[in-house]
């Protein structure tokens, strides 16, 4: 038994905190009534995920996660929400009373199955340290092993940029 106040114990506690943060953020994001609160939940969730990346030995990716997702993506969404200027969203359709319990039941089964799967399966022992997750290592694998994905993703980004321009331009005329 590892003592809670040893290094491992504290880091384990922190790890669970990050998991809790991720889950809590996700729950807030999906269940909040107002959009702004949902976005805040999303930001919380992203923060938790960044913590998990840190534990996966990728400090750089964790930093980028905070910078891009929390810093940029969430802020952009907030901009969009404010520009759209929608007031509190009303629930458009009256939900069937059975939907809630059934949803809980279904997701409960899913969680149970996946958790069982994760516990029962013999996962590969954490593969030997691939690299130390530094910027150099990341750059090297992006330009060697994953060069194809790296180049291809720039085309995907190009599509996204042009696409958003085209759609936005079309919208303004109308």
């Amino acid at each position: 038994m590892v003592s809670l106040f040893s290094v491992e114990g504290l880091s384990g506690l922190l790890f669970f905190c990050f998991i809790g943060l991720t889950l809590a953020g996700a729950v807030i994001a999906t269940s909040a009534r107002s959009l702004i609160r949902s976005v805040a939940g999303l930001a919380l969730c992203f923060l938790g995920v960044a913590g998990l990346y840190y534990y996966l030995n990728s400090p750089f990716v964790a930093l980028m996660q905070i910078l891009i997702y929390v810093g940029a993506v969430c802020v952009t969404i907030i901009f969009a929400v404010m520009l759209a200027g929608s007031s509190e969203l009303k629930q458009l359709t009256q939900r069937n009373g059975l939907v809630g319990p059934l949803a809980i039941l279904a997701s409960g089964i899913l969680v149970f199955a996946l958790a069982g799967l994760a516990l029962k399966t013999e996962w590969l022992a954490a593969p030997c340290l691939v690299n130390r997750g530094t910027v150099e290592d990341l750059g090297q694998s992006l330009l060697t092993t994953y060069s194809m994905s790296f180049e291809l993703i720039s085309v995907v980004l190009l599509v996204a940029v042009i696409g958003s321009l085209v759609l936005a331009r079309q919208g303004r005329d109308k």
Binding site: Y146, M148, S149, I153, V156, V159, V166, L167, Q170
Partner: peptide, 29 residues
């Protein structure tokens, strides 16, 4: 075209996304 030649999971995913994103955009145009 890239998708059918990819034999690595991440490459496969990104090639698939390239084709899907373009299609997503064609619909609202």
């Amino acid at each position: 075209l890239m998708l059918v030649s990819s034999v690595e999971l991440l490459t496969m995913l990104i090639a698939l996304e390239l084709s899907s994103y373009s299609l997503y955009l064609l619909v609202p145009m």
